[in-house]
């Protein structure tokens, strides 16, 4: 078998999008409070889920190349633009703490009924337009200090892929244990029940019987 199939059609997009959206929702990433809990130290799910996914995907790509299903260099690897990549990542970090989502999770937030996610999306469209307006001024900074095309950590450190993947698995494990200890100290992580009960509590008028709404843990 030979991968990638390079199928970028409608069904490919829909199918992979459904998997992506389902996984993010199952992780609880349709909830802005659970997501932002990462940086408030109350919920380390963003770190845990993301690092697990990175290790699983990286190991799978390595395995596919080992058994000859995929050739090295046959799939897209983003190129580093030191300032652009780092500053862009930082702006997204700030915007995430203000807005509650990143772009992908905002789609899951909307799919989970969150109106704030829809407003956030309007903001993203506006922010993209602002970038286009100032692109000529910002281009020298954005495209400066481009690293080698498709530069990877194994190339940077001069080790094989599986060494980097093993190191990432160790970092993920240590971060996981640390995160679990910290989030418990801060009363987390958020449960689906708590997030939704507190939403219901906010929406309901004063003095009404809250029925099944549970007190905060």
């Amino acid at each position: 078998m030979t991968f990638p199939l390079y199928d970028n059609g409608l069904l490919s997009g829909l199918f992979l999008g459904v998997l992506f959206g389902y996984a993010l929702e199952a992780a609880g990433f349709g909830s802005a409070r659970r997501l932002t809990g990462q940086f408030l130290l109350t919920d380390w799910s963003v770190f845990k889920v993301m690092f697990t996914a990175v290790v699983v995907a990286a190991f799978g790509l390595w395995l596919f190349q080992m058994i000859g299903w995929m050739r090295p260099g046959s799939y897209y690897v983003p190129t580093l633009l030191l300032y652009g990549t780092f500053l862009g990542g930082a702006l997204i970090g700030i915007g995430f703490m203000l807005g509650g989502y990143c772009p992908g999770t905002s789609a899951v937030g909307l799919a989970s009924g969150r109106i704030d996610a829809l407003v956030y999306m309007v903001g993203m469209v506006a922010g993209s337009a602002v970038y286009a307006m100032v692109f000529d001024w910002i281009r020298p900074l954005a495209l400066a200090t481009a690293g080698p095309q498709g530069w990877t950590l194994p190339q940077l450190f001069g080790v094989s892929d599986i060494v980097v993947i093993a190191a990432l698995a160790v970092i993920a494990f240590i971060g996981w244990k640390l995160g679990t200890a910290v989030e418990r100290r801060f009363g987390g992580p958020y449960t689906a029940e708590k997030v939704l009960a507190e939403m219901d509590g906010l929406e309901a008028p004063e003095g009404r019987d809250f029925g099944r709404v549970q007190p905060a843990e």
């Binding site: 500053l87 700030i94 915007g95 203000l98 337009a129």
Partner: peptide
């Protein structure tokens, strides 16, 4: 805050040529 956060993220994602999904994950 959702609107302002969205604007920053929309701008930042263009600067980084992708977002938490495309470049991060």
């Amino acid at each position: 805050s959702a609107l302002v956060g969205g604007v920053l993220v929309g701008f930042g994602a263009r600067l980084a040529q992708g977002c938490t999904s495309g470049v991060g994950l």
